[in-house]
Structures are given as C-alpha cells and as structure tokens.
C-alpha cells in the first residue's frame, strides 16, 4: 500500500546573493497513515524548511513529494492552497489565531475556504471545539483566552476540515510546562483516535510523545541526535 506521504531525494536550495544555501539536501522519508512522528533538529538543521514543504507552503527545488497520491512539486499556487485546505491542519508555536475574532469564527476559517455551507460549518466548528474541550468558550475572542486555550482553538481549527495530517510546529513553545502537557495529551488523544500527527520540535521531552523520531542535521536525515 502507498504511504500517506513520501519524500524522495528532496532538496531545497535558497540563493542569498552569490551564496547557495542547501536548507535540505537529499531528504528521503515516508510517513504512513495514523503514524505519530516527531521531526527533530537544532535550529538551522532544516526542520522548518522541511515543515514548510510537508505543509505544502513551499515546493522542493528538486526531488519528489507525493502526498496522499498527489505529486506536490508540480502544483500551482492555487492547487497548493486547495491541498493545504484539504490535507493539512497546521498548529503554530504562536497560535496564529485571527485577533478580534471569536474562537468559533477562527475554527470556521478553513471551512469557509473549503466552501462548506454556513449551517454545516457552524456545526462542524462547534464539534471540533467540543473535541478540544472548549465547548463553553466558543464566543470568546483570543485575547479573552489563556495560552493553552488559544492553542486548543488552533488545534480545533487544524482538525475541523478532517485533514490527512496534523502538522504542529513547536506547539508548546509558548506554553508553560503544565499547559504543554495538556496540549501534548490532546495530540496523544487525537493520534489514538486515528489522526496522523507530525510534530516539529527541538525538545526531546515533547518528541518523546511520538512513536517515531526523525533527526535532521545540516539538511540531511541522520540516525540519532
């Protein structure tokens, strides 16, 4: 059976003036449906670049990336946006909720771009918020919520369009340790429920939640830290 995603010999090259920077240099990896994976590495190791590629925010300079049967490297901006909408659920370190917008409206956002009609959108957003334990906070705005609650809203937003992958970039980087545990508990639970979760982190403690760890150094996949 085909893997959920597979990268083959992927490179990402940035040109900074006369200097070529190979942020990713021949990365090959496969991730199966339902896996719980942590991508680890120090800053500058290329893990952010890899996350951007996996999240279809960017396309590789060379090599191939097949996500759920689609060759991503060929896609136009428009098609990439559609893939992000359908296949990827992002959770960011800085939450990235829309300010002055209720939790409910924030969670509905991906559904708006998916063209889901209003009634169903609301129902599904409420369902997602209920799933992260915020059923009683739906009409609060981000500045009325704690950091942990904000990240839960972000997780609900990531879940709401039933993506193939939950892609979390340092999801606990802005949270205290107790709240971090709660959020990681939520990811564990989502994984047990059948979701594919990819964490990008430099913290071993966070990565320990995952079943598999992929280490990056200087743009290459390496065996251990």
């Amino acid at each position: 059976m085909m893997s959920l995603l597979s990268l083959t010999d992927v490179a990402k090259v940035y040109r900074m003036g006369p200097v070529e920077v190979r942020a990713l240099d021949g990365v090959s990896l496969k991730i199966e449906r339902g896996e719980y994976v942590a991508i680890m590495g120090a800053s500058g190791s290329g893990k952010s670049t890899l996350m951007n590629l996996l999240g279809c925010l960017d396309t590789p300079s060379s090599g191939s990336y097949v996500l759920n049967g689609t060759a991503v490297e060929q896609l136009s901006d428009e098609q990439l946006a559609a893939i992000r909408n359908r296949e990827i659920g992002f959770v960011f370190q800085t939450f990235n909720l829309l300010p002055r917008t209720t939790a409910l409206a924030n969670v509905e956002l991906p559904l708006i771009y998916a063209g889901v009609p209003r009634g169903e959108r609301r129902r599904r957003a409420l369902e997602a918020l209920d799933r992260v334990g915020l059923a009683d906070r739906v009409s609060h705005q981000p500045n009325e919520l704690s950091g942990g609650q904000r990240q839960r809203v972000a997780v609900a937003r990531a879940l709401v369009n039933r993506p193939s992958i939950l892609l979390a970039d340092e999801p606990t980087g802005n949270l205290d340790s107790k709240t971090s545990e709660e959020i990681m508990g939520l990811f564990d639970e989502l994984h047990r429920g059948g979701n594919t979760v990819i964490l990008v982190t430099h913290e071993a403690e966070i990565a320990a939640h995952a079943e598999r760890r992929i280490h990056l150094r200087d743009g290459k996949v390496v065996d251990g830290p």
């Binding site: 925010l57 946006a81 559609a82 992000r84 990235n96 956002l109 991906p110 771009y113 369009n161």
Partner: peptide, 9 residues
Amino acid sequence: VRKAVGGRK
C-alpha cells in the same frame, strides 16, 4: 494564516 488554512490568492 488565511493562506495556510487554504485561502487562495
């Protein structure tokens, strides 16, 4: 954020 969650140009 809008682009990340699927907003097109």
